[in-house]
């Protein structure tokens, strides 16, 4: 997907979202006695974003294809996009799984697993690397967990595995 196409898509997406948000302001209740309603500011902002999105759309449609930057890769199709952004997608996915499992695993075990799994995914596929990753995960997360739990007195999610 070229930069120009991406810009057009983003501009259209912004227009759709801001239109929906602008329409939403018509459903806000009017509080009796209020001089200025709660809808004024959201309307001002969504209207402003809408206007800018139109400008952005026009600009994107009129723009010529930009010169590719040094760090820009040629991306053709969704599969290629996933290949290029593999690490980022994996990190977001692992982070999402970590958050979803917090209720059961808790911050300590969940955090250690998140760090270990993500490091192993990103790092080299050797036994030495796995051992270092495990040590890094246990020491770093354990250390920070201990600081917050014991030194700062913050109760982090405990999960259901560790005894309370």
């Amino acid at each position: 997907m070229s930069r120009i196409n991406a810009d057009v898509v983003i501009a259209l997406l912004l227009l759709v979202i801001t239109s929906a948000l602008y329409l939403d302001t018509y459903f806000y209740e009017t509080v009796p006695g209020a001089i200025i309603g709660a809808k004024i500011w959201p309307r001002v902002v969504t209207f402003f974003i809408g206007g800018l999105s139109v400008l952005y759309l026009i600009q994107s449609l009129r723009a010529t294809r930009p010169e590719p930057k040094d760090d820009d890769e040629q991306i053709n199709g969704v599969a290629d996009w996933f290949r290029v952004n593999r690490n980022v997608v994996a990190c977001f996915a692992f982070y999402g799984i970590f958050l979803a499992s917090l209720k059961w695993l808790g911050m300590l075990i969940g955090g250690i697993l998140f760090v270990f799994v993500t490091l192993s995914f990103l790092g080299e596929n050797t036994r030495r690397s796995f051992i270092i990753n495990a040590i890094v995960a246990i020491v770093c997360v354990g250390f920070m967990w201990a600081i917050f739990t014991f030194a700062l007195g913050v109760i982090l999610p405990q999960g259901e595995i560790l005894p309370r």
């Binding site: 982070y95 955090g111 998140f114 760090v115 490091l119």
Partner: peptide
Amino acid sequence: AIVILAYCAIGIFT
């Protein structure tokens, strides 16, 4: 980077 990401989670939760 990954260790800092984990720290972000702990810090934000507090």
